[in-house]
């Protein structure tokens, strides 16, 4: 009985965070069909990450695609998918590409007075997608004093 209650509580805690994030789900579906592989990190690991995320961060979602073929250029293709999902005017705030094929794109946009952050990272054999909502006041504090905020542990 206690185990059932615990399971139900965990599901209730997890559900509101999982529901309603169509952007993340759409992008994960795209990557899943591309790599023909289910991601890890969406279940228990994602739940734990949400529990220990710093103040000002909410709705943390994570998907990790392991042992996938990242040799094929994926950046431009993924950018087009992101644009069609979030909006055509959204461009990556930061794009990094290394000679070894490591690639990282960071998107930041506002929706319904919320600041949303999406990180796409691709390196040898592994692709990580991370999305979260940020409290603008907290974000400003982080931008102004990243080291101090890190010392305060968020």
């Amino acid at each position: 009985m206690r185990a059932r209650s615990l399971l139900l509580s965990a599901l209730l805690v997890g559900c509101p965070l999982r529901a309603g994030d169509k952007v993340f789900d759409h992008l994960v579906n795209h990557l899943q069909s591309r790599y023909q592989k289910a991601p890890v990190g969406t279940g228990f690991m994602g739940f734990m990450a949400r529990c220990f995320s710093p103040k000002g961060v909410s709705g943390l979602r994570m998907a990790i695609f392991e042992e996938v073929d990242t040799r094929q250029p994926q950046g431009e293709d993924f950018e087009a998918v992101v644009r069609s999902t979030i909006g055509t005017e959204v461009t990556p705030l930061l794009r990094s590409l290394s000679r070894t094929g490591e690639r990282c794109s960071i998107y930041l946009w506002e929706r319904e007075k919320r600041t949303e952050l999406l990180i796409f990272s691709s390196e040898k054999g592994e692709v990580v997608l991370l999305k979260m909502r940020l409290d603008p006041d907290r974000l400003r504090e982080w931008l102004n004093d990243p080291e101090g905020m890190a010392r305060k542990k968020g």
Binding site: V90, T91, L93, L94, R95, S96, S98
Partner: peptide, 12 residues
């Protein structure tokens, strides 16, 4: 060895 692009336009 590494190229970084930062774009901050209209919405950003």
């Amino acid at each position: 060895s590494n190229v970084v692009d930062i774009t901050l336009d209209g919405p950003g």
